[in-house]
């Protein structure tokens, strides 16, 4: 509200527009606050709780970034973005980084001028059906009525999948997830399709969850990851390597509880470099030596974040699946820290 003099801003627009700033890292440090664009309403990934504090899998990465850069996981301001506003918020500089379960696609990376720096969750589109339908594979859904959110990539994926398999379907379009869940439960459609993580959380809240099954087919690739603006590569590096420090920490068994102890006792040179005991990787990013240590201490390594927000112990109960370490048959593979 304050210091936003409307007329002055309008008058100055033509003069100052286009003047690039010194760099996102300098801005963040000068502000002493990281502004993180997150989802305002995705169960387990990003949403405010009853007290208005943001919680979730994506939010935890924001906290780790805040800790790595500013030394305090609480120096993060969360901007809840909707599907429509998220990319504008990032492009216009309203947020420093967007960690909002956004799918890494070719056109977003190139045409929209963003950089996806990593993939923090490998998702994919699935189907949920009632058991009584007697279907055990998505390939048996020929002629089915399917609830689908409009204006999303899931709508396009669905069309692709049915065309590729030479099948037909009747779409029942819904506005958002709550609407889709409602229609599916009320029996307006045979199947509901959205990202598999979303299906799992919906199924977990159904009163008769044992009567519903999620079909094994995953019909699309949805690599969700943090993204930054084109053109500030140093800032992209910071986000990328802070994320990989959490992945590497899980691989090497470093947790938020034992990170200090590991730093002082470890003999593994890779861990020594990661935690800043040896070498000075932080300086190459423009940060100090302990950046990764703080990031891990803030909310834990990747596995801890996963288990705390969306893992098997939570009501959502997602299995690691593709999001396991490469040593466990998953896709998480942190490049070497050297």
């Amino acid at each position: 509200m304050k210091k936003s003099v409307f007329l002055g801003a309008v008058a100055a627009t033509g003069l100052v527009a286009g003047v690039a700033s010194a760099g996102t890292l300098d801005d963040v440090k000068a502000r002493d606050q990281l502004i993180c664009g997150v989802n305002i309403s995705l169960t387990g990934f990003g949403a405010p709780d009853a007290n208005g504090n943001y919680q979730g899998f994506d939010v935890a990465l924001c906290k780790a970034l805040g800790a790595a850069i500013l030394g305090d996981a609480n120096k993060v301001k969360y901007v809840g973005t909707s599907g429509e506003t998220r990319f504008t918020a990032l492009a216009s500089g309203e947020v420093d980084v967007l960690i909002r379960n956004s799918t890494w696609t070719f056109s977003r990376d190139t045409d929209l001028k963003f950089d996806f720096v990593a993939v923090n969750y490998y998702d994919g589109q699935g189907f949920m059906v009632k058991k009584e339908l007697g279907v055990s594979s998505a390939k048996e859904l020929d002629g089915a009525t399917i609830c689908i959110q409009t204006g999303t990539t899931t709508e396009l994926n669905l069309a692709d999948f049915f065309k590729a398999n030479n099948m037909t379907y009747n779409p029942v379009t819904v506005l958002d997830d709550a609407e889709g869940q409602r229609q599916y439960v009320a029996g307006a459609c045979d199947a509901y399709t959205t990202d598999a993580s979303g299906l799992a959380s919906i199924r977990a809240t159904l009163p008769d969850r044992d009567n519903h099954i999620i079909l094994p087919e995953i019909v699309s690739k949805e690599p969700l990851g943090p993204l930054v603006r084109h053109g500030d590569n140093n800032w992209g590096d910071i986000v990328r390597w802070t994320f990989y420090s959490l992945v590497a920490a899980e691989e090497y068994g470093i947790t938020s509880a034992n990170v200090e102890e590991t730093a002082s006792s470890t003999q593994n040179p890779e861990i020594k470099r990661l935690l800043g005991v040896e070498g000075d990787l932080g300086a190459m990013l423009g940060l100090d030596k302990d950046w990764a240590k703080r990031a891990i201490a803030a909310t834990g390594n990747y596995g801890e974040i996963f288990e705390a927000n969306i893992g098997a112990a939570t009501p959502i109960g997602l299995a690691r699946g593709l999001n396991a370490q490469w040593t466990q048959g998953g896709l998480l593979y942190a490049p070497p820290f050297r």
């Binding site: 305002i40 949403a47 809840g80 909707s82 869940q181 409602r182 919906i202 809240t205 159904l206 939570t314």
Partner: peptide, 27 residues
Amino acid sequence: VAFVGLNDPLKGITQVVRADMNWKGIY
């Protein structure tokens, strides 16, 4: 104003509440 990312009572706050695992599915 829900469409520009503000938390109006009807859609904004409601979707936040529904994102809570405890109240997901409330309609």
